[in-house]
Design a protein around this nucleic acid. Structure first.
Lengths: 351, 351
DNA sequence: CGTTATTTTTAGAACGATCTAAATGGGGCA
DNA sequence: TGCCCCATTTAGATCGTTCTAAAAATAACG
């Protein structure tokens, strides 16, 4: 039996359609874009042929000619983190709805990888970039690989170093300080006096802001914060569990902790369990982010809601709006946050 | 003070560099691609000028001319699910390492959105597609919008309907049946006799496979499975928590459950708690996926590990390899899974 | 029927790169 | 000096679209 050699069809282009319909490329192009210029009959003829040949529009070619872009780059420090995964889903939703496509890049918190990812993505000509920077990445290097014209929306974190005035980058930041303040106030109202701030890298901007909000609330309540009530950790469960010991090194030990984020809070819960403490009974704690599992763990986690999916949509909208007015100056948007009280923030045992 | 109007520089192209160096476009192009043909001095001159003008390579233009692609589309039914988020991170890692870029699309389990997403992505000319289909999506429609030539790697689920022979699509599937079998055997060894299969949509292929593995183990142990020991739910925590009641509608009630996946298992834990039962003490359960929180919840969740990040890398490698040999026939890869025993799978109380 | 509007179509350049085939400029050598 | 060879460089077509300006076809009108 003769092996039927699969016919390696070239991709079908405007020219093929034009030839088949005996019209010019230009006419087919007009049909594709639904121009009212073209006659009803021709339009139908052409549309049928497009269908028949299984034509696929080549947007890259069109973009080249039109000098436009139809993609948005999304560069995240950690896609595997549920907070960012939700955020990405939100971005993609809105980007897709606007007829754009999302170019994904994940940097795994490495400034070097971030550079590589950015320079690779930029070559594909995205209309703009949504960037949640890797820890320790700096403004001038990022600027260097993006060029001064690329619209950028910075999410969640500031870059180290400072930007030239010329770059009008937008920012979408959580109200970290206020969120931490709310959490702290809540614990104080519950009756706690010895409260620690737990987790996060002290040099990251979001950690600094959250610590500041914490300190503000403590100061207002005239509560003092011994130096060893500020405990650092990587912002992961595992490292937080490890760092738990440091909390109890001090005497007297705290009775509650405001955690840098939910991941850290969950890690701390684990650590507490290993010390024989019951979070939500003899130790109170709060998180930050309200990731899905915060509601599901036991005890359920009191936390600060930031609605990551909605933030993703918002980021996309902001950037898409910016594409229309590239020359206006960058704006800083700070989104309000909300305290979600659950069961992990119990009153102190001997209140 | 005269407002210094920001100079709206056109993008710098090969031509600009060529002009500045007084060489031809072709020469600059050769420099960009590190061709050995060009003279050392010219190369250096050109490279300096590229640097100076902040040239950015236009890969779309190059791809157009070369008739190549430098992107891979990744279409997922649910990006917000930690399992797929990890998977996506793995894909992007490998795709990036190969010098490609990831085009992201999230369908939210809607076959309609999936169609829209696919037809949008395809226009950007990806070299291939990694697709984890939405529930209820069907082969012929997908085929229709992708065309017969596009390399496709199907992950995690089969499509409904069947494919024309002509399409050599690859598949990367988890060994669902075997995984569920392992989990069931483990519960049987723990001493359980009344075991349910909990959660998932019965019509999804992965659920069918997992149920089949469950039934196989039960049959081998000569344990019978009453019809109401097969409980359906959406594969989410929330719906699983709701569906918990159905488990205890039967008499006698089961003492253990093999859950469709971790999300469902976590939901079931919640539901059990609401009924005053303690998972891991008076009810045993297992999950599937080994998502991050499986190790962190209390009790920690016995589950089946599928290493989603590594699966992502593997999927990317398979697809990239396929790009080299588009005409070979599609392969089906089934990845082994592993039982991770933790504390949720306790023996029955009255063993 | 000739003119002018109006509608519809189109030739050809352009977008920013690559590729082919050929041109250019030395050196070496007879 | 003339010829060949090698290393470099380049003109011009090309990828699949859109755009501009103008041509062609049709309608309208005195």
């Amino acid at each position: 039996m003769p092996s039927t050699h699969a016919p390696i069809r070239r991709k079908v282009t405007l020219i093929d359609i034009a030839a088949a319909c005996d019209v010019s490329r230009a006419t087919v192009s007009l049909v594709l874009r639904n121009s009212p210029l073209v006659n009803r009959h021709t339009r139908e003829r052409v549309q049928a042929e497009l269908q028949r040949q299984g034509y696929i529009y080549n947007r890259a070619a069109a973009n080249l000619r039109k000098r436009t872009s139809s993609s948005i780059a999304l560069v995240l420090n950690d896609l595997a983190n549920p907070f960012f995964a939700e955020f990405a889903a939100g971005v993609d939703e809105e980007v897709g709805a606007a007829g754009f496509v999302t170019l994904l890049g994940s940097t795994g918190e490495s400034p070097e990888r971030q550079q590589a990812v950015l320079s690779s993505l930029i070559e594909h000509g995205p209309g703009g970039i949504i960037l949640s920077p890797a820890e320790g990445s700096d403004a001038s290097r990022v600027m260097e690989s993006l060029g001064p014209q690329m619209p950028v929306l910075l999410f969640n974190r500031e870059l180290g170093g400072d930007l030239p005035e010329s770059a009008h980058w937008d920012r979408l930041m959580l109200d970290n300080a206020h969120g931490a303040e709310l959490a702290t106030m809540h614990l104080i109202e519950q009756g706690h006096r010895r409260i620690a701030f737990f987790g996060g890298h002290a040099q990251s901007s979001s950690c600094q802001q959250r610590r500041a909000g914490f300190m503000k609330a403590m100061k207002r309540a005239r509560l003092k914060v011994p130096k060893d009530y500020l405990v650092e950790s990587a912002p992961t469960r595992l490292d937080a569990a490890r760092a738990c010991d440091a909390l109890f090194a001090s005497d007297p030990a705290p009775t509650a902790a405001v955690c840098y984020n939910d991941a850290v809070a969950l890690g701390l819960m684990l650590g507490l369990g290993q010390r024989g403490l019951q979070p939500g009974r003899n130790f109170a704690l709060t998180g930050f982010d309200n990731i899905g599992e915060a509601a599901m763990v036991s005890p359920s986690l009191t936390t600060i809601s930031t609605a990551p999916r909605e933030r993703g949509r918002q980021a996309a909208r902001l950037l898409l709006a910016r594409l229309e007015h590239p020359q206006e100056r960058g704006e800083r948007t700070i989104v309000p946050v909300e305290l979600i009280v659950r069961t992990s923030s119990c009153p102190p045992l001997a209140a």
